[in-house]
Amino acid sequence: MTVFITALVAGLAVGSVYGLIGISYSIVYSSSGIFNVAQGNLLAVGILVAYYALDEWKIPQVLALLLIVAVVVALSLAEELLAVRPIVARGSGGITWFISTLGFGLVVSTIAENIYGSKAVMAIPSAFGESPIRIGGVAIAPKFVASLGLLMIIGFGLEAFYRRSQIGTVMRAVAEDRDVAALRGIRVVRIGQLAFVMAGVITGLAAFVIAPIVSSDISLGLLYGLKGFIALAVGGFGSMRGAALGGLLLGVGEQMLDTYWSSNYEIVAGMGLILLVLAIRPQGLFNTLRLREV
């Protein structure tokens, strides 16, 4: 039972990060109509910054958090400017943006890996300490709770933001119909930038909470990006809750395979889950809103 709960908690923690990446995709996709394949690579950069800030320079956690978010947001904006906006502006059909963001992600990841060099993977201290929380005889490290907590806060916060705030309504209008929104005087380019900033903040925060869990393993960028996509696809496009639940489902599934079969087959969970969803409910399990006819 303890083994099961430990696996469950770890699954929820890692799954939260998949969910957060899924949410980041969703924000950018709804405002720009593009899918930022580099999102996972940006997470890896965040982990790299976390390593330097906390292990090498040993700066306070709060400053480290700000630094991580700042770096990831800056890179997001650079990506929007260099690899996304020219393509969206050209308005050519197809998914050329897929290629450019994939390329940008590869550049970012390669640079990060070179900066890190061939050092072994190092533990990164958590802002929430190491003293475990005890729930019914099971000890849970606070870093796991932090990850799930962040997903909850971001998920519900964003839903409220999209529904209540004026800028959130504007963003929904752009998601609904970019051209009409532009005719209505909404500056769609600014909204696109804002979406990249928001996605950057979320990915930065995700890097901050995941770093103590996965240590300084910065090679997992693209893989996390793809798992974030699976989270979104399983949950359903256009649904924050869907992405969050899809991520949790994937994370828990992976940890269960890891615990009860072999860690080598952990990766099969994502493939199995996505194939299952595609077979029975291609629009996603929790899809409520259709952003676009596929």
Partner: peptide, 8 residues
């Protein structure tokens, strides 16, 4: 990666 961005 850079070539992919530049070309696309």
């Amino acid at each position: 990666g850079g070539l992919l961005v530049i070309f696309s």
